[in-house]
């Protein structure tokens, strides 16, 4: 149950923002991830810039986490 906001993640060798399988009820908003390079999808719907493999993590939909895989 963490709050993750206003962070910028660029050009990393794996996912920009990764919410792992043990993450739970985090809130993430206004984050920007661009140009990251996930070598493989970590969860359904994940992208090279973002992966949510946890449970009940929520966003208001105001992140910039593009590049669908």
């Amino acid at each position: 149950m963490n709050q993750i906001e206003d962070n910028v993640m660029t050009l990393n060798g794996d996912v920009g923002l990764w919410l792992g399988g043990n993450s739970f009820k985090n809130v993430y908003r206004r984050n920007t991830a661009r140009g990251n390079q996930s070598p493989s999808p970590c969860a359904i719907g994940s992208t090279p810039d973002f992966c949510d493999a946890g449970a009940k993590n929520t966003s208001a939909g105001d992140n910039f986490l593009p590049d669908p895989q």
């Binding site: 206003d6 050009l11 990393n12 996912v15 923002l17 919410l19």
Partner: peptide, 16 residues
Amino acid sequence: SGNAVSGSGSVGIAIG
């Protein structure tokens, strides 16, 4: 909040 992570060999920000 307000962190900038760039050019890491692995994940930018990893939680959980």
